[in-house]
Design a protein around this nucleic acid. Structure first.
Lengths: 338, 338
DNA sequence: AATTTTTACGCAATCGATTGCATTAATGCG
DNA sequence: CGCATTAATGCAATCGATTGCGTAAAAATT
């Protein structure tokens, strides 16, 4: 394998100008079929590969999309990413993925780096603590498409993709109530984030609807790290009147609550009925199987990808598809049986 | 926010040459402290951000590392990726991540794209079916560092990071034997890949060591997709003599086997003892808890990242750290109790 | 055949940062 | 003070592809 070969090499070899080579390779209409073929053949046989650095510089675009997620290694996120990657890859976009690790500061740094890297668009799912959005408005100011998914925030002209967390929270709670629960504890993630805040709102609305008074004590806001399970268990043990229903904002946490509750001698669902959220694979593994809310991660990724790419291609305009709400589905399993 | 500002803008504003600006920004020794400070201050206050396209073109490097994995959405892989991302991000490298979806063809395409994108290095975990490595030797030919992790292949001068799958397979099988199993079924992934092939070898060696004859019938090679669980169950049900031990090459699959076996009336571990592999979170959720082999994904990612970056910086040379083998740990839980 | 219109291609500037070499300014030294 | 060093900066080419504009050649028109 020799040196990298450039359009200049091709041009020289074929006695045409570099401009012609470039245009041929890009299938520009004003080049005759013959020359095009000649050049493309030569390019192929000489193993020409376009230098993206040069192309990027000259076109001021990178064919790259930046993605910032709270963490890569959660089932939900990696599934969303799989969806995004699929569509991006299919149309020739690269994905630069970075994780904020739930830190607002790191999110800012990530955004800066991606900005510097010249991504053509940014897709983001916010960290727990992000409150300031200057790192994102930079993108908007520079007309770089910005899309939120799952953990969204309302910025002008930014499409968002999510589910109706309020309705889902409502349905989850309603289900528990229908199963006979009257004292339902809700374990929420950071309430700054829409996903948790909305689920909580739904929870409250369901209580109201069924004439149950909401008690501050029945809301626990944690970061959903498993190390926080014990305090939740304590909370439940010390509850008076006794908690008889548990609505947890994510399956992983719910599953570990069940494990601990079982250890403490609780019968699930007889003593406490438990609802999760996400339909994570573990929900089908725990015994009793966890009732949960299905949350279409892969589809979310695919739609997010399609949306941003359509947008980059000018096919979709911002106004028309400013918010996509995906369907959620209540999944009833053993953990909430009467 | 106005237009993007360049070193030329800065140069003009400060009455120096672009060269001086560039050198100042890169802390070149031959620029006086005063001018450096002056320029850096101005850059900061004007919000200068270096145009990576230009820098890349001129330096012929991208500060970007390509990663190809079979799939993003598995707990193990996303954990490894989290580790890689962490170290890469800490030292200012970007990660372009793509998934082969276990298809050799897509892996080739991914490799091409990453090559074209000018990644400074490539890290890869192979798809099930990859047998030809031309798409990777391209990198070697062009002196682009190439590293394998987990699903590796021995190419000259390519560092690999993995665990001792043979030993782990041996220990897993030995444990089953020690617990009294005499007819152990092994569920393997594609045997073309080292991880599965080696685990299988370890399995066989353990059998031999304990005087058990290996039967072809006791090896099932599947792609470990959950849709394949039923056929495994059938296999077990029809086995004669009865299978009393199951060594599955990954936890997810193992867990679903347990679920199905329980449905079929088997008692785990009384009737069949089950060993998984990976120490996936689900292994602690299934009842009975699954014995497994701990496999340090995050650490693998971190080491892989450090290795390739050290290498890019010239700190580590290829020869010295050509293969890193991580420790694995047998984790004994309920599913293999006597 | 003369002229207009198309078609096909080349010229040269551009994108923004980097860097080898030359040059000027500052400093040192006898 | 004059010359040799050394320090600090500028010039201009380079990285490789893209693209507006101009022009020569071919085709169409009358």
């Amino acid at each position: 394998m020799g040196k990298k070969i450039t359009i200049y090499d091709l041009a020289k070899k074929l006695n045409v100008s570099p401009a012609t080579v470039s245009r041929s390779l890009n299938d520009h209409p004003s080049i005759s079929k013959k020359t095009k073929e000649k050049i493309i053949d030569a390019a192929k046989s000489l193993g020409y590969r376009t230098n993206k650095f040069a192309a990027n510089l000259s076109q001021q675009k990178s064919n790259t999309i930046g993605v910032i997620v709270p963490r890569l290694n959660s089932n939900f996120m990696s599934t969303v990413l799989a969806g995004i990657e699929k569509v991006a890859n299919d149309v020739g976009y690269n994905l630069i993925i970075s994780q904020s690790l739930e830190s607002a500061e790191k999110e800012v740094l990530n955004a800066k780096t991606l900005y510097d890297s010249g991504v053509d668009a940014l897709m983001i799912s916010l960290a727990y603590g992000t409150e300031n959005f200057d790192h994102l408005t930079t993108f908007i100011d520079r007309k770089i498409p910005l899309l939120f998914f799952d953990r969204v925030f309302d910025l002008p002209n930014c499409p968002t993709i999510l589910i109706d967390n309020e309705a889902a929270g409502y349905e989850a709670t309603e289900h528990l109530i229908n199963q006979g629960c009257t004292n339902i504890l809700h374990i929420a993630g950071g309430l700054k984030r829409n996903v948790y805040c909305q689920r909580f709102k739904g929870y409250k609305r369901a209580l109201e609807k069924y004439g149950i008074t909401f008690k501050e004590d029945n809301l626990v806001e944690v970061d959903l790290d498993l190390s926080r399970v014990p305090e939740v268990i304590t909370h439940i043990k010390e509850s008076d009147p006794k908690i008889d229903g548990l609505f947890v904002a994510n399956d992983t946490f719910a599953v570990h609550c069940i494990k601990e509750l079982k250890k403490e001698g609780y019968n699930i669902p007889q003593d406490i009925k438990v609802m999760g959220f996400n339909n994570d694979p573990v929900s089908e593994v725990i015994s009793p199987n966890l009732s949960t809310m299905d949350y279409p991660g892969y589809k979310m990724g695919v739609l997010a990808g399609q949306s941003i790419i359509g947008h980059l291609n000018g096919a979709i305009n911002l106004q028309s598809a400013n918010q996509i709400t995906l369907r959620h589905t209540l999944i009833i399993r053993e953990s909430t049986q009467k």
